[in-house]
């Protein structure tokens, strides 16, 4: 299988008036094409910093990030993002349809094609007919579905998610997790997710990258050898699921 993303010896330092903060130290890992990879670690370990580097919002002080063998210097074209704070990443002054249409302006699409993409993406996330609604007229879970639809509409090869389900209630979270699995199944998108929820990471991922320490290093890359399709009822009761979550939890907490 081809490698979609390669993180090679990435280090990140911030210069502050009080001195230099060393956030990431020689972080390396590879993401296979079509895989779902979660990045976990204790609070403040530098997960979000890593995410900013992966999306091209910031440049590492050392090392490089390659997307399909090409070093990234700004946000790659075929990348989509879903962020935790949907109220801040959707535009309240645009309808759902226009929110989704905005990133599509960078692609050369006819009006009909654009319309078709929007309809299909909304159908994929179970929000048929919500085109003319405004984000603030929808519940939190529905807004996050709009964010996911916006991401899908650009037909990305890479999807990056930052704590995507942290701001919705538990029931909605399970629904959205299964939605993300379905999306991965339907489109084979390589997905990277930062999360603090270890159960969620085990449930969704092919591999889990555990960051640990100050500055953060890759503590381990855990292969989640639970077969797909997964289900909330069965997978979470699986003995292997329990083993893996205990293992990852131990590492995140620095107990292993």
């Amino acid at each position: 299988m081809a490698i979609a993303i390669a993180v090679n010896g990435v280090s990140m330092e911030y210069k502050t008036p009080k001195g230099t903060t060393h956030v990431l130290d020689n972080v390396s890992y590879e993401v296979q094409d079509g895989h779902f990879v979660s990045i976990v670690g204790p609070s403040g370990v530098g997960k979000t910093t890593l995410l900013r580097l992966l999306t091209g919002l910031a440049q590492p002080t050392a090392g490089e990030i390659l997307v399909r063998g090409k070093r990234i210097s700004s946000s790659p074209d075929d990348l989509a993002v879903v962020l935790q704070d949907y109220t801040r990443s959707l535009m309240p002054w645009l309808s759902v349809e226009k929110n989704i249409a905005l990133p599509l302006k960078n692609q050369k699409l006819t009006k009909a094609e654009r319309k078709e993409r929007i309809t299909a993406s909304l159908a994929e996330v179970g929000l048929e007919g919500a085109e003319s609604k405004y984000p603030w007229q929808l519940s939190g879970g529905m807004q996050q579905r709009v964010s996911i639809a916006r991401a899908l509409a650009v037909r990305p090869s890479i999807l990056v998610m930052d704590e995507p389900f942290a701001s919705v209630d538990a029931q909605t979270r399970f629904d959205l997790e299964d939605l993300v699995l379905k999306v991965r199944d339907d489109f084979g998108i390589t997905t990277l997710m930062v999360t603090h929820d270890i159960d969620e990471a085990v449930y969704l991922s092919d591999e889990i990258v555990v960051l640990q320490g100050k500055p953060a290093k890759v503590r381990d890359v855990v292969k989640v050898d639970i077969p797909f399709p997964r289900s909330q009822m069965e997978t979470r009761n699986d003995a292997r699921f329990a083993d893996l979550r205990t293992h990852v939890y131990g590492m995140v907490r620095g107990l292993e």
Binding site: T55, S74, S75, V81, S89, L102, P103, N106, V154
Partner: peptide, 20 residues
């Protein structure tokens, strides 16, 4: 957060001003 979302989607300065 909104501006960074737009940057992730490859939207330049002009679009950031106009739409955000």
């Amino acid at each position: 957060v909104l501006i960074e979302t737009m940057r992730c989607y490859g939207m330049g300065r002009a679009k950031q001003v106009l739409f955000a």
